[in-house]
């Protein structure tokens, strides 16, 4: 399987230990800023600041490199194609109907950097936050417990369904299943595999329903939580400082609307 089921990289940095609710708030502020910057330079500065913040929060270059790997194709295409679609400002070259202009290039760079900023923001949250804590944070922020449970069960059963898919494929292969031929043919070949995977998932849901009921889901309205999230003093400081920082930056951007 070629996907990461959990991006969390355990660590002890200040960002790691920050309450997930504070991190969500910071991410929201960051996203607002990413859409505020309309000049490639300010956006570039923003990306650089994000990158450094993550680095100092103990996220390793390897992890950040992985993120870049995932992003680079999109960034490349945006830089390549976007200038041709939004010509403005000084024209640099004209090839048939296509116009390469300074304004086009600048908007392409801006958009590409914005996408990178968004990726680093989500990365900053997911790389440093345990999934369980994140779900608990959502619940504390008002998500009904059953919805939070749905989310954690989804995350919990990803590997199970992934393994199921592998096992089913192998089992069918050893009964003579081969994939070849054109697309339509292949789609048909996948039929029994998909059916077996889905039946497996449905049976899992049958069993899980019984398991949850047997362990008392919905038994009492006053559900308790073993390890409740607590805002520590530092969490409040981070919350206040990041909000003040956001306000200050926003103020500056009002003075220089071209940024």
């Amino acid at each position: 399987m070629s996907f990461a089921l959990d991006l969390y990289v355990p660590g002890r940095s200040w960002l790691h230990r920050c309450d997930p609710r504070v991190k969500l708030w910071m991410m929201l502020l960051g996203l607002i800023l990413a859409f505020r910057w309309t000049h490639p330079l300010s956006q570039a500065l923003f990306v650089a600041v994000l990158l450094l913040t993550l680095r100092f929060a103990g996220v390793r270059w390897r992890t950040l490199g992985w993120l870049w790997q995932q992003m680079r194709l999109l960034v490349f295409f945006m830089l390549l194609l976007q200038p041709l679609f939004s010509p403005s400002g000084r024209v640099l070259a004209q090839i048939g109907p296509l116009t390469l202009s300074l304004g086009g290039i600048s908007s392409a760079v801006l958009l590409a950097l914005r996408v990178l900023a968004m990726a680093f923001l989500t990365g900053g949250l997911l790389f440093t936050t345990d999934q369980r804590a994140l779900v608990r944070a959502f619940v504390r922020l008002g998500l009904p417990y059953t919805w939070g449970l749905t989310l954690s069960l989804t995350l919990r059963f990803l590997p199970a369904i992934g393994n199921l898919a592998t096992t089913v494929r192998e089992a069918q292969a050893s009964r003579g299943w081969v994939t070849e031929g054109n697309l339509l043919h292949r789609a048909r070949e996948y039929h029994p595999v998909l059916i077996a995977i889905i039946i497996g998932a449905l049976r899992l849901s049958d069993q899980l329903t019984l398991a949850l009921a047997a362990r008392g889901l919905g038994y009492t309205e006053q559900r308790t939580t073993w390890r409740e999230l607590r805002m520590r003093r530092t969490d409040w400081w981070v919350l206040v400082l990041s909000t003040l920082g956001f306000a200050a930056v926003w103020g500056v951007s009002l003075i220089f609307p071209a940024l």
Partner: peptide, 11 residues
């Protein structure tokens, strides 16, 4: 419905 939703999302 809860388990169905979770498992279909995983699927």
């Amino acid at each position: 419905r809860l388990t169905l939703t979770a498992l279909m999302a995983a699927l």
